[in-house]
Computed example of a mutant assay.
Amino acid sequence: MTPEEQALRERQGPGARYDSPDAPARELAWARRGTAYFARKLNELSDTGLDGPSLLPGWSRRHVIAHVGYNARALTRLLTWARTGEETPMYASPQQRDTEIGLGASLPARALRHLFAHSETHLNTEWRDLPGPAWDAEVRTAQGRLVPARETAWMRTREVWVHALDLDNGASTRDFPPDLLDELAADVLRAWQRRKEQVRLTLAPTGRDPLVLGEDGGPTVSGAMPDLVRWLIGRGARGLESDSGDVPGIPRWF
């Protein structure tokens, strides 16, 4: 047993452990449910199916799985930072991230599946062990933003749910919890606002009040909320209608 594993075991102690009352309960529930969803879609793929293309240009399904696994490890480093106060960035460099994904994608199928399973278990353990005050400790994302450690739950939520779509084997935004769909749409709008994107658009979810973006709202895009969110997060325009004819192009999410 390594010193790190021994330290983890000592923290765990005997018996059951629970999240701190200060933990972000809603986001952790989304992240854990999304992890189970991603795991189910992964388990539906045969070993040879892992070699198939994903929805992400230039990436196979193997790349998506490796990315999701190593993302859990990167978030674990942020939780270590929050717990100890010692700076441990998500990645030493963008090159480290890309190298990890490339190497992970080349693993044998069993090892690649293990990477996902082990990393998500470790991340969940770190969440459970994080003391209350540490949830508000500031850490830095890979994009350079300073955020409280509680943001890691939302960061992971996005990764597992959205990349389940990218496996391209039947995952659908129609499987997403309705409140998660609302928060994903809000997250896209926040990202556009941070980057000062000039967006003129009216979103008209079925059965709900429209949302006007920009001074005059621009073209109106209407459809069911799951289909609107799929489009907003860059995974294709299906089941949508636009009063301008074609569904317009929009800025990227990340």
Score class of each variant (00 low, 15 high):
residue 211 L to K: 11
residue 172 S to E: 11
residue 154 W to T: 01
residue 154 W to V: 02
residue 16 A to G: 06
residue 214 G to M: 08
residue 49 G to K: 07
residue 140 R to E: 13
residue 175 D to M: 02
residue 204 A to M: 09
residue 247 V to Q: 02
residue 218 G to H: 10
residue 194 R to D: 12
residue 226 P to G: 00
residue 94 P to G: 07
residue 14 P to E: 15
residue 41 K to M: 05
residue 104 G to A: 02
residue 80 T to M: 05
residue 178 P to Q: 12
residue 5 E to I: 06
residue 244 S to R: 13
residue 142 A to N: 11
residue 135 W to D: 04
residue 10 E to Q: 10
residue 186 A to P: 02
residue 55 L to G: 10
residue 10 E to R: 13
residue 95 Q to V: 11
residue 51 D to E: 15
residue 178 P to D: 14
residue 214 G to L: 08
residue 215 E to T: 07
residue 79 L to E: 06
residue 156 R to Y: 08
residue 76 T to P: 00
residue 202 T to H: 10
residue 102 G to W: 04
residue 87 E to R: 12
residue 8 L to T: 03
residue 84 T to G: 11
residue 142 A to I: 12
residue 150 R to I: 03
residue 73 R to A: 13
residue 219 P to T: 09
residue 114 H to K: 14
residue 243 D to S: 03
residue 2 T to E: 14
residue 134 A to P: 00
residue 3 P to I: 06
residue 154 W to R: 13
residue 26 R to G: 10
residue 115 L to R: 14
residue 161 W to L: 03
residue 141 T to K: 07
residue 57 P to I: 02
residue 187 D to H: 13
residue 5 E to R: 15
residue 215 E to Y: 02
residue 182 D to W: 00
residue 105 A to K: 01
residue 129 D to F: 08
residue 79 L to P: 03
residue 167 L to Q: 01
residue 214 G to R: 04
residue 40 R to L: 12
residue 191 A to H: 10
residue 32 R to E: 12
residue 104 G to R: 03
residue 20 S to F: 05
residue 131 P to Y: 06
residue 58 G to W: 06
residue 176 F to P: 02
residue 52 G to Y: 14
residue 98 D to N: 10
residue 205 P to F: 01
residue 41 K to I: 00
residue 166 D to L: 03
residue 200 R to D: 09
residue 30 W to Y: 15
residue 233 I to Y: 01
residue 247 V to H: 03
residue 194 R to C: 02
residue 124 N to Y: 06
residue 151 E to Y: 15
residue 245 G to P: 12
residue 101 I to D: 09
residue 172 S to I: 01
residue 150 R to W: 13
residue 65 I to D: 00
residue 165 L to Y: 04
residue 17 R to I: 10
residue 75 L to E: 10
residue 16 A to T: 07
residue 13 G to C: 04
residue 206 T to Q: 13
residue 163 H to I: 01
residue 81 W to P: 02
residue 234 G to W: 04
residue 143 Q to S: 13
residue 22 D to H: 12
